[in-house]
Design a protein around this nucleic acid. Structure first.
Lengths: 140, 140
DNA sequence: AATACTTTTGCAACATTATTGCAAGTAAAT
DNA sequence: ATTTACTTGCAATAATGTTGCAAAAGTATT
């Protein structure tokens, strides 16, 4: 399993370091979008703040993570699908934010539909955030 | 025209003050999503930073403005349609961010389509940000 | 396995963005 | 005109994000 993490890092042209493996492992386990603060808290000072920022940046740049938009003002990130490469994100899925648990998850199977834009507008990418109550919270 | 601004404020249960009229006027003129920094710069210190923050918050709360998602980390706001009320936003339009001029505009006529979510998910609102090149910039 | 080379880390300092408390000022209700 | 409630500006503080640099760690080469 640690081997898997190594492989992911290697595949994305990243050196294998302890911090990177730890951050990556945390993302795989949590399964929801995470902020810098979430990660810092989880490691409770075992890694430097700045290192975590830089780790997130390299992961973003190399296509390990993608940004998840939110209206809270704090940046959140989530694991990319396998086929994402450097600066070449091919995620086209919906993000769902639960109003109860506040978690944001990637709905990988729900794709953002094509829309007709007014004449003159050229589209490159879209980002759709849906808010409501998630599966888990609606069962309580 | 200043009367119109007064009316908007009154309609949303907001006291009519100079700062509020000025901020509102700026939004009506600019027509794109604005950040706190945009407004502060425009007023070049004629209003306190904190007052601007608080103005944005009350506008948001009373339904004069809505938040616009962006991946830059700074909060952006845009004018609501007339029918928005306190805590009861009925905006369902697409936001378009131009990669050239970096402006974000509301495409009020492009609505976010209904999507089928997995079982158990209840939807309350959606927010769609599209990125590309806007009408104006693609004509150059 | 030791070396040389390159990238990453941690620390300190700094920059930007946002929030809170409080006294003084202003809008509106009586 | 007076009272009341809300808004403003200032100071201080908090939260979030960035940069430079020396030491440490990863990788490639011999």
């Amino acid at each position: 399993m640690s081997k898997d993490l190594d492989k992911i890092l290697k595949m994305h042209d990243l050196r294998i370091t302890q911090v990177r493996k730890d951050v990556l492992a945390f993302f795989s386990v949590r399964k929801v979008a995470l902020s810098h603060a979430d990660i810092e808290e989880h490691f409770s000072k075992k890694a430097d703040r700045v290192t975590i920022y830089r780790t997130l940046h390299s992961f973003l740049e190399k296509g390990v993570l993608h940004k998840v938009l939110d209206d809270t003002g704090v940046a959140k990130y989530a694991l990319c699908a396998d086929h994402c490469e450097t600066h070449q994100h091919s995620d086209n899925h919906v993000h769902f934010k639960c109003m109860k648990c506040l978690n944001i998850e990637c709905l990988h199977h729900v794709h953002i539909p094509k829309l007709n834009l007014p004449t003159g507008y050229a589209l490159f990418s879209s980002n759709l955030l849906m808010e409501g109550v998630c599966k888990h919270c609606s069962m309580e």
